[in-house]
Simulated scan of single mutants.
Amino acid sequence: MTAPTIDAIRPLLDRLFEAERDDVAIIARIAADRSDVGPGAERASLHDLPAAELSDALSGVLIPVTRETGELLYVLARNRGVRRAVEYGTSHGVSTLYLAAALRDNGGGEVIGTELQAAKVLAARANLAEAGLADLVDIREGDARETLKDLPGPVDLLLIDGFASLYLDVLRLVEPHLSEGALVLADGMPEGPHVIGDYLDHVRDPANGYVSVALPVGDGIELSLRTAAR
């Protein structure tokens, strides 16, 4: 039996997770230095900043999915037999590596990622090339509301892990392409309903064609099953 691709890329993943260990401290320092998001400010968190401003503030931070979330992505993508996955918020490509590894083991396919920061796009492409998975991935540089307008076919899995204020915008953009039975994962639930409340209202309303559940995995996941393609 051939070893799963995920086993071959674990040393690279270990290195990337080690590199992000200081992310929390860096983000805390950024917030503390801003009067509009620091203690006593009206804004509750960095996620309340406009998307472009938040992207610039966090340009040097990896902020990947957690290892537990990455493993979940791999398991779900393998089990679903995913052939096309879309992710919003590629950063340095940790989640992309998990998804691409699953697609390799599924026999092929495509991961379409989108990332606003040019330096992060380069880093992600380098990591995917090192893993030997670049041929399965199309990373699009720019605003997801533009880069994801053109999708080549049905989407079996959507990962939303970018600016919280855009979660529902991205879902609505990709929604017409979701296949029946597609999985949608929204990462970063501890930021709370106050920043993605409209997104949660949408996927938790059966009338919108989803069955959805909150999972205590990693930073918190909202996992939604697309019950009917439109």
Rank of each mutant, 00 (worst) to 15 (best):
M1T: 14
A8H: 10
D14R: 10
R21E: 13
D23V: 11
A28N: 14
R29E: 15
I30F: 13
I30K: 11
D33H: 10
D33E: 15
S35K: 15
P39A: 14
P39E: 14
P64E: 01
E68G: 07
L76Y: 08
A77L: 08
G93D: 00
V94R: 02
A101L: 09
A102I: 06
R104T: 06
G109H: 09
G109A: 07
A118C: 04
A119C: 07
A123N: 02
L128P: 02
E130K: 14
A131L: 09
G132T: 09
D138K: 12
E146R: 15
E146W: 07
L148R: 09
K149M: 12
L151G: 03
P152N: 08
P152H: 08
P154D: 08
L159I: 14
I160Y: 01
G162S: 13
F163N: 12
L166D: 15
Y167C: 09
D169L: 07
R172P: 02
E175P: 06
E175M: 04
P176T: 01
P176D: 02
A182K: 00
D187W: 01
D187M: 06
P193A: 13
V195D: 04
D198R: 15
L200P: 06
R204Q: 14
D205G: 11
V211Q: 14
S212Q: 07
V217L: 10
G218T: 09
